[in-house]
Amino acid sequence: MADFESPAAQKLLHAFRQFKKTGWHEKKIAGYNPSEFKVLVTIKHGTDEKSDLKVSEISQKLHVTPPTVTQIINLLEKDGLVERSVDPEDRRAVKIKLTSKGIEVTEQARSAFNETFAGLIDYLGEDESEQLAQLLSKVHQYFNQLIHP
């Protein structure tokens, strides 16, 4: 096993700390925080596949609790991005769908998100981008094995 005091370990730890400090995963995307963006995209994908989604379906897809999704839906509804409707097959269930404004905002946010990663690929180049993707996948596997042995 590698020594935690080794130069490689210190360099890796420093890189992880720097990466976390950038807060890139917390930055707004086209004016919406990452959790709102994820809900919008999930609804968009869900309605592309079938009819409108229930809050429980959105929460399952995002691996978060229904109350968390409900809070986000409330904010998005207030901004006119989503609308609720009663499920005709189950009057107790509420379906969520994007409004036309919601579709437009989701596409703008997705475009901004894609531009960020396209910029990273331009910055690193194709080969280093591919290497980074492979290494990050291995990092994910390593930490996943630690958490779920």
Rank of each mutant, 00 (worst) to 15 (best):
M1H: 05
A2F: 10
D3H: 06
F4G: 00
P7E: 13
P7A: 04
A9C: 06
A9E: 04
K11P: 00
K11E: 07
L12M: 12
H14E: 06
A15P: 00
F16C: 12
R17V: 09
R17C: 07
Q18I: 04
Q18P: 02
F19A: 06
G23Y: 11
W24R: 08
E26R: 04
K28P: 09
A30W: 04
A30H: 07
G31D: 04
G31W: 06
G31Q: 07
N33W: 11
P34W: 07
E36A: 06
F37C: 03
F37W: 15
K38V: 03
K38N: 08
V41L: 14
I43A: 03
G46Q: 03
D48V: 13
D52M: 12
L53G: 05
S56N: 03
S56H: 02
S59D: 03
H63F: 11
H63C: 09
T65M: 15
P66W: 04
P66Y: 01
P67C: 13
P67S: 15
T68Q: 12
V69H: 02
Q71L: 07
I72Y: 00
I72N: 00
I73V: 06
I73W: 01
L75V: 14
D79R: 14
D79C: 10
D79V: 03
V82H: 01
E83A: 06
E83V: 14
S85D: 02
S85T: 07
V86G: 03
D87Q: 12
D90R: 08
D90G: 07
R92Y: 12
R92A: 15
A93F: 02
K95Q: 11
K95Y: 05
K95D: 11
K97E: 14
S100F: 10
S100W: 05
I103H: 05
T106Q: 02
E107T: 09
E107M: 13
E107N: 11
Q108M: 07
A109R: 07
A109S: 01
R110D: 13
R110I: 11
R110V: 08
S111L: 15
T116K: 14
T116Y: 09
A118L: 14
I121M: 12
E126M: 15
D127R: 13
E128Q: 14
E130F: 15
E130T: 13
Q131E: 12
L132I: 05
L132W: 00
A133H: 04
A133C: 07
Q134E: 03
L135P: 07
S137P: 00
V139I: 11
Q141F: 08
F143D: 10
N144S: 08
Q145I: 04
Q145R: 14
Q145E: 05
L146T: 06
L146G: 07
I147C: 10
H148C: 08
